[in-house]
Design a binder for these strands. Structure first.
Lengths: 210, 210
DNA sequence: CGATACTCCCCCCAATCAGGTTATTTTTAA
DNA sequence: TTAAAAATAACCTGATTGGGGGGAGTATCG
């Protein structure tokens, strides 16, 4: 089999046992090869460009600079590589920061070996591999709160306000009077118990009303 | 095996061949049973509450009311059920509207039968099953444009503006002078070629600068 | 019928926003 | 180590917006 067609994988993981486990797994799977293996981003930074990986497996809890903060830097060093996050944590904040920073997938460390291999293949084929709970959290992040106290119109107007539009412009675009928009806004503020745009937007977003 | 522990699945799909295929598949898989099978939302609406499904397989392109618009109504009729979208289309707009309307998973119709069964199981166990390309699109939606013309500070300030905060408040929270905030905003407007908050936010969001 | 939603009107005034120009200091990259 | 880029701050002007108070008419729907 032509070694040149193997998928080149780079591992950045500080725990030696886990790291060697991945090295063994990937090194012994036909079609895959280890392009590099590092215990920290600082180590990886020096050589990762030369290693030219197709996929980077990145631990989030690294010594020194964290995996999440390392993400954009790795992207700059190897822009064509896909980065898969490996972590024991399942916190929303970390997930969304990782995805926002350029991760192409997010796996928890209890993922069985064969799933890790299939995740690497999946990301190479245009997929976005995620562990089940992660995927659920990602999907949930899109969902609205059905118990919103706001009416349809109020929600619509608050969404417009959240885009930075002035009341006058909102009135024009919704074909209603400026005074009507003001009325709705007063009602929104009362319902959400706030006294400003910013607070209304924050409360509404926190509660997924918009 | 106790029928009472079977996962109850309801199918809403107008194409009879496909629908019967799913009925056959699920009806003949141990642990699963057909709770209902309908060719349109209008049909389903009458009986779905009584059928008490655990999972609803929903086609997006239905005659009459579309699957996406039917979603919130189904949620009201069977609030505890998980809804999985089935579609031949892979358009961003449809995906995000479906997820926003309460879908718990999104599968393309070329999904092999065994994957459909595992998706049903996955959603019951707290996962968020998605076809590979869908997952990629969802992940991509979180990602920033690395070619943003805005500096880090400008991006930060524009994000704050997008939350509805006033310039004065932004200045206070970032521990800088109001005049500095104004300077940054002027630079942002020049770079984005806009003349208002709303236009800056729109341009920045369209281009994934924020 | 009464509740809810949507619409519109009047008042007031402080605060904010947009634009122009210049200039210093700090940070980053070549 | 030097030049460029980014972040900071100042002064000016004028128009627009935002928040709060009150009241009131018209649908729609169960």
């Amino acid at each position: 089999m032509s070694r040149d067609l193997d998928i080149r994988v780079c591992i950045i993981e500080d725990d030696e046992t886990i790291r060697e486990g991945y090295v063994y797994l990937i090194g012994n799977t036909p079609g895959y090869k280890i392009a590099g293996s590092h215990a920290s981003f600082e180590d990886a930074a020096k050589r990762i460009a030369a290693e030219d990986p197709d996929v980077v497996l990145l631990d989030v809890e690294l010594p020194g600079i964290s995996g999440i903060d390392a993400l954009p830097k790795i992207k700059k060093l190897v822009p064509e590589a896909y980065i898969l996050i490996l972590t024991v944590y399942e916190q929303d904040m970390l997930i969304f920061r990782a995805l926002g920073n350029g991760a192409s997938g997010y796996l928890t460390k209890n993922t069985p070996p064969e799933k890790i291999i299939s995740a690497i293949q999946e990301v190479m084929e245009g997929g976005g591999p995620m562990s089940a709970h992660i995927a659920r959290m990602v999907i949930t992040s899109f969902q609205r709160n059905e118990a919103s106290p706001l009416t349809r119109r109020e929600t619509e107007i608050l969404e417009q306000i959240a885009t930075g539009k002035s009341r006058k412009r909102i009135a024009q675009e919704l074909f209603i009077d400026l005074e009507t928009v003001k009325s709705h806004i007063k009602n929104i503020y009362h319902k959400l118990n706030v006294h400003s745009k910013a607070d209304a937007i924050k409360t509404a977003k926190d509660n997924k009303f918009i």
